[in-house]
Design a protein around this nucleic acid. Structure first.
Length: 368
DNA sequence: TCTGGGGTCCTAGGACCC
DNA sequence: TCTGGGGTCCTAGGACCC
């Protein structure tokens, strides 16, 4: 979907149409841009840019706070249109999905026509535009879809994959970010062709375990399937404060609020977690995480608060101030699968903390 | 200029077991 | 005098994506 969040806001509020719209948190709240309409992008406004900077660059922009529930609604509409075409739909986010239309192509449908009909259907149903990339594998389709935004349609004919990729910067490959780009640049690798020409062994040496895969991708080879269902691995929530917070009632309240939110999300997904981790970002942006595993999977806010508080108190030092606090839950288990411990009459949760030796060594435990 | 929030995956080191 | 090897699980940090 093109500039998805911003486009939904313009759809729902005609007064915003034709205007630069920026969706994201407020500048005072240290927000960043989640999405910018194309009118705003003309001013250089981009996703992930601090809102303060976005509004400086584009003073006429209208800032809108995100409404994720609404984006989810529209997303479900769009995904339903996709699924009417093929059940083989892999959503990547609210506004992006892979569709395996091999069956249609095998039956003689031209990729252009499939894409055109899809775009027309989404446009007439939701009023929104999207960009389609079509190719013989996921990497090609993904890169092609980014090429002619907005309202784009790019088809990469079978057999032309490597030539299509060759002149692009390595950064265009999925999984190559700024750090990896720099590593490759130091080795003289700047374009995808540069990477494709090197040996697989070189790629592995420079890129570690993902080297083999990236090398293949650079050569246009990618045999990943379209996966309909992904099992969720973690559930979390975090909050950046409008101003840095030292330990105190406000911070403790935030901890409880975040735990409550995480518990709500766990419950609504019918999962419980064996591992609870907290994330702390200091004033200087240095970020640490501390985690602790519990024997019996939990989804109760009060218990999560207990674990998180314990972890927090183990690291906080006098004078520390934080700009962000987060809680993540992982090692998820389905809520239905309750094992032994509860059944055997235990009514408490044991916390085994191996993160520090100070006051609790392995084998020690605390209960709530 | 001052840096969100939701995630996934990988690496490295240490504990622990046989 | 010199201190295994393989495997698994856990924790912390970091790169990356949308």
């Amino acid at each position: 979907m093109d500039a998805f969040y911003a486009s939904v806001e313009q759809l729902d509020n005609p007064a915003l149409r034709g205007k630069p719209v920026v969706v994201g948190g407020s500048a005072e709240g240290r927000g960043v841009v989640a999405a910018a309409s194309y009118e705003a992008r003309k001013f250089g406004v981009r996703s992930a840019m601090p809102m303060s900077r976005a509004l400086r660059q584009c003073p006429d922009a209208v800032r809108v706070s995100p409404r994720f529930d609404r984006y989810g609604e529209v997303s479900r509409q769009v995904m339903a249109i996709f699924r009417a075409l093929t059940p083989l739909v892999e959503p990547l986010s609210l506004d992006e999905a892979f569709l395996d239309v091999t069956g249609w192509v095998r039956d003689g449908a031209a990729p252009e026509r499939i894409a055109r009909e899809l775009k027309d259907e989404v446009k007439s149903t939701t009023g929104l535009t999207l960009s389609v990339g079509a190719g013989s594998n996921k990497s090609i389709a993904k890169i092609a879809s980014d090429l002619r935004k907005p309202d784009g349609l790019v088809v990469v004919p079978v057999g032309t994959e490597a030539a299509f990729l060759a002149p692009m910067p390595v950064r265009a490959l999925w999984g190559i970010g700024p750090k990896t780009e720099a590593v490759l640049a130091r080795a003289g690798i700047r374009t995808i062709a540069d990477l494709a020409k090197r040996s697989e062994a070189d790629a592995r040496r420079l890129l570690g375990s993902s080297g083999e895969f990236l090398h293949a991708m650079a050569n246009g080879i990618d045999d990943r399937e379209v996966i309909i269902e992904h099992e969720r691995k973690s559930v979390g929530a975090e909050r950046t404060f409008a101003r840095d917070l030292a330990d105190g009632p406000e911070l403790r309240r935030a901890l409880a609020d975040i735990a409550t939110e995480v518990a709500r999300r766990l419950t609504s997904s019918s999962v419980r977690a064996h591992t609870i981790s907290i994330k702390l970002r200091y004033t200087n942006f240095h970020t640490i995480t501390r985690q602790s595993s519990v024997k019996t999977a939990i989804d109760d806010a009060a218990v999560i608060v207990g674990v998180a508080t314990h972890l927090f108190e183990n690291v906080v030092a006098p004078g520390d101030e934080f700009r962000l606090l987060g809680i993540q839950c992982s090692r998820l288990a389905e809520a239905g699968e309750q094992t032994a411990l509860w059944d055997q009459g235990s009514d408490s949760v044991a916390i085994v903390d191996t993160s520090r030796g100070d006051d609790m060594g392995p084998g020690d435990s605390a209960t709530w």
